[in-house]
Computed example of a mutant assay.
Amino acid sequence: MADLLEPLGLDTIEEPALSFQQRAENLWADSIGWLDAHMIELLIGLAVAAVIVFVMMGVRRYGRRIYERNPTLETWQSVIGRTLAKTKTWFMIALALEIVAVYSNAPAAIAGTIGFFFSLAVVVQAAIWARSVILGVIEHRTLTDEETSETLASAMKLIRVLVTFGVVAIASIVVLDNLNVDVTGLVAGLGIGGIAIGLAAQGIFSDLFAALSIIFDKPFRKGDSINFDNTFATVEQIGLKSTRLRNVGGEEVIISNTNLLDKEILNLTRLNRRRIKFGVGVIYQTPADKAARIPEILRDVVQSLGNEFVRAGFVGFGDSSLNYELQFDVMSPDWDVVFQSQHETGIAIFKRFAEEGLEFAYPTQTTFTSAPDGTMIMPYPNVTMVATEKSEE
């Protein structure tokens, strides 16, 4: 009607807006009509929703029992149990209403309202579960690994704050997006703020995440002997910012976690054996048959001490010696045992060579003197010894 009157220059007639009472009456009429038309679907939806809620309540009760048996989170079952125990009743109700509304084809107004509350409930419940799982995994690692429990325990307060902030921020953005709120500016603001905080505390967060990387990835543990650059040391403490080590000279070495992980680290403790190399040199006057038997002699010495022989043989002609090399494995990761075995092997080789008549070489030099015509002469003049008789008195 308004479109027909406008070309004639007549005033348009505005349709009166419905009052709250009229809208309520219309909603009630629509609801009654929907109940009459979809009673069977509504009853089936209610039954299905009741079963699902009953099952979820049983799962929650089961989770509580598991968590009550071991509230210290020492097992993965207790972590899962605590997470299941945090399932909220309002989430179950929202899930049940959503199932009923979808299955029974509820009116748009009712379905939209139920869908909004269901989306809100899902986001909040998922955030609660996520926080519980993340903190549960970290706390479980704190309790099961005694070597890293001290470091994780000191970091737990900061970790809880960071995890809670992250989960709440993500959940808030999702909720606002479901409310058709433009979250672009909020996301950009959080991003800029995060970058500013990250730049301001770059060193602290870098060392913190490096410490967590050491704890979870375990490239080394407390008490391990490691080698990096030219440092051989034993790990004494893994802190949030730095790791403290004790080198072989007794000095304490303190290095930041980030700097330590940037290096190539050799973990010597995880070896089930250690290889020892010996260089042996004998004089050039050694008979050829005895020189050929030296590798066999070295094998006998190594095996007599209970070590694992690898190889031995002639490696070169030295300035004043025939050079041999011996390689054998000591079947122990303990460096004290290895050092003692190296000592015993060296002494045993020394004794065996003495028994075999093999002489160790040492730096020597022989000087030859020649006459002007090239004839070899002695480096000192010939002296004729004259015997004299002692006269009798």
Rank of each mutant, 00 (worst) to 15 (best):
L4A: 15
L5G: 08
S19A: 12
Q21S: 08
Q22W: 01
A29F: 15
D30A: 14
W34S: 05
L35R: 05
A37Y: 03
E41S: 13
L42E: 00
L43N: 01
M57Q: 12
V59R: 06
R60E: 04
Y62W: 13
R64D: 14
E68I: 03
E68T: 00
E68H: 08
P71G: 00
T72V: 07
T72A: 00
W76R: 13
I80N: 07
R82Q: 04
T83E: 03
A85I: 01
K86H: 03
W90A: 08
W90Y: 12
F91P: 00
A96L: 03
L97S: 01
V100C: 11
V102I: 13
Y103T: 09
N105P: 01
N105E: 07
I110C: 02
G115M: 06
F116Q: 04
L120W: 12
I128P: 00
A130H: 05
G136W: 10
D145S: 09
E147Y: 11
L152P: 10
A153G: 03
K157M: 07
V163H: 07
S172K: 02
N178Y: 09
L186Y: 13
I192F: 04
A200F: 07
F205L: 15
D207S: 13
A210G: 03
A211K: 08
S213M: 04
I214H: 00
D217L: 02
P219C: 14
F220G: 07
R221D: 13
D224N: 14
D224C: 07
S225Y: 05
F228G: 10
T231S: 08
V235E: 11
R244M: 14
V248T: 11
G250C: 07
E251M: 05
S256R: 11
T258S: 15
L260A: 09
L260Q: 07
L260R: 06
L266T: 10
L271C: 06
L271I: 06
I276W: 02
G281I: 02
V282Q: 03
Y284V: 08
I294N: 12
P295M: 06
I297E: 13
I297Q: 11
L298H: 07
Q303F: 05
E308C: 05
F309H: 00
V310N: 13
R311E: 15
A312P: 02
G313M: 12
G316L: 06
Q327W: 10
D334P: 05
D334Q: 06
W335N: 10
S341N: 06
S341F: 00
R352T: 11
F353A: 14
Q365K: 11
I377A: 06
M378S: 13
Y380N: 11
A387P: 09
E389K: 15
K390D: 13
E393A: 03
